[in-house]
Design a protein around this nucleic acid. Sequence first.
DNA 1: CGACCCGATGCGAAAGATTGTCATTCTCCT
DNA 2: AGGAGAATGACAATCTTTCGCATCGGGTCG
Lengths: 139, 139
Amino acid sequence: MMENQQIKQAGLKVTLPRVKILNVLETSELRHLSAEDVYKELLAAGEEIGLATIYRVLTQFEGAGLVCRHHFEGGQSVFELNRGGHHDHLVCVKCGKVVEFVSEIIEERQRAIAAEHDFQIEDHSLIIYGVCKQCRESA
Amino acid sequence: MMENQQIKQAGLKVTLPRVKILNVLETSELRHLSAEDVYKELLAAGEEIGLATIYRVLTQFEGAGLVCRHHFEGGQSVFELNRGGHHDHLVCVKCGKVVEFVSEIIEERQRAIAAEHDFQIEDHSLIIYGVCKQCRESA
DNA sequence: CGACCCGATGCGAAAGATTGTCATTCTCCT
DNA sequence: AGGAGAATGACAATCTTTCGCATCGGGTCG
């Protein structure tokens, strides 16, 4: 079991709910899931789990660096498996599709701006909202 | 009354609550206020107003382009008077201080990235979270 | 292998933010 | 001034997320 190692290395006890949640994150079609999404996938798979546990576990995973939390529009947090590289997001406001991208130029400018204002960067979030090609055509 | 004109030009009926709310946005010390903040400022000024109205009016103002809504971390929306120029934010995670900035280089890169992925940009949000100088020194 | 300890889970209740309902009030037009 | 219809206020409802607490499970030690 791959998951067990990852959880252990993150310094967390290996429990059934944690393994199942991590597994959903790894195997789901969606790369970006809300706590509710994870909950529904597990219920659909016939797994017994409490929603509160999902929130707790996802928060722990975030603290351990296993997942990233994003605040897209819509009032709820979405989680994404941390596969190493940092990246930003392009979100379609019609269909919700998410495209990931990286721009070293932007990253570099951000560091420069933070430095100018004497801020020590902890994190940053860049989200571009737009309408994707398919949604424009079907409109 | 400056406010009346702005509200009328936004295509909204000029009502007392709207004028008062716009006035708070224009005169408050803070440039970024949550609905609750606006509510508290009005109560402190002895004004009678319902919180639900604040939410409704702010949402209308947003639709009319009078204010911008931002989703900083912390689970609630903050609103800012739209003074024309778009800008992004640098937020101190310790004290909540907000610094605004603009980078034409970043804007331009964003347009290029959206174009590459065939997205028509509607909006975007760039927030850098960090620790400001004062907070680092007092730590 | 079995007992134990402490953290982890599940459930329901609670908190915080936001929106909906609906009777009453206010704006704007005549 | 009068009236149609939109806007408001009070409160309930919803949604997301967190808390409290009794119970359960994982890992360790004997």
